[in-house]
Simulated assay, not measured.
Amino acid sequence: MSVVWGPDAPSGRDRLAARQAALVDALVAGGPPPDGFDTARLDATRRALLRKRAGLAAESWPLLAASFGEGWPAVFARHRDGHEPVGALRDGWDVARAVTGLTGGAAAELAARESAFRYDGRRAPRPRLRTRLRRRRRR
């Protein structure tokens, strides 16, 4: 590691921010483990965070999660590991779209969301025009 002195030297705050960003990237976005961190502990923490995200997504997508039963956290992890969190609704939506052969309630849940909202996988879901018009008529 080279040391930079003078006005271009990063401050202690900048160095800390860079290390924190590298840690977050390793935990939730598939980044490499930062220097000085125990990879086994990082991996255990990453898996725990994925389980927590799976639980939150199950609250937004109860029929999807129920369709996989006890296997839901593993299904969620298979599709979202290495992807940064985008919120429970979007995480679950991305899993629902990635899983092939959804049936029953899970397929109906996805179809209902797809008919009411537009979601391109990059930006937050937005209500479709007819959904917005129905909401206005109710007011």
Rank of each mutant, 00 (worst) to 15 (best):
A26C: 14
G55V: 03
A17Q: 11
H83E: 05
R51P: 01
S60R: 14
R90D: 06
L16Q: 12
R97L: 07
L16C: 09
S67W: 14
F68G: 02
E59L: 02
D38I: 04
A96G: 10
G92C: 12
A88Y: 14
D38E: 10
G92Y: 05
D91M: 02
F68H: 08
R78F: 04
S60Q: 06
G101T: 07
G69I: 09
G30E: 12
R47F: 03
G36I: 12
F76K: 07
R51W: 05
V24Q: 10
P73L: 11
E59K: 01
L27T: 00
A18K: 15
A77D: 04
L89E: 15
D25V: 04
A58N: 05
F68Q: 06
W93V: 12
D38M: 07
L56I: 04
G69V: 08
F37P: 02
A57L: 10
P73K: 08
D43N: 14
A22W: 15
S67C: 09
A17P: 01
A18G: 13
G101R: 07
G30H: 07
L50R: 01
R53W: 05
A77V: 06
E70R: 13
A26F: 05
D25W: 04
L56N: 06
L56Y: 14
H79P: 03
F37D: 04
T103F: 02
R97Q: 11
E84M: 13
A77T: 13
R51L: 06
G92L: 08
A9E: 12
A29K: 03
V75M: 01
S60N: 09
F37Q: 14
G101Q: 07
V95L: 10
R15Q: 11
D14H: 15
D43F: 10
W72D: 00
Q20P: 05
A88T: 10
R53V: 06
L102S: 01
E59Y: 00
L42Y: 05
T103Y: 02
P10L: 13
A29F: 02
R97H: 09
A22D: 12
A48K: 08
V28D: 06
L27R: 06
S60A: 14
A57H: 01
F37H: 12
W61C: 00
D38K: 04
P73R: 10
D43C: 13
L63S: 02
S11P: 03
A44D: 08
Q20T: 13
R15D: 02
T103H: 07
A29M: 10
H83L: 13
T45K: 07
R46G: 01
D81L: 12
G101D: 14
D91Y: 00
D14T: 14
G30N: 13
A54G: 03
G101P: 05
F76I: 02
T103M: 03
R47C: 06
R19L: 07
E70L: 11
A18N: 11
A98T: 03
Q20W: 09
W93E: 06
A18E: 12
R80A: 00
R19T: 01
W93G: 02
P10I: 14
A9K: 10
V28F: 04
G101V: 03
W72I: 00
A65L: 03
L63T: 00
R97I: 06
A65Q: 02
R78L: 12
A26D: 09
R51Q: 13
G12N: 15
T103K: 13
L50S: 00
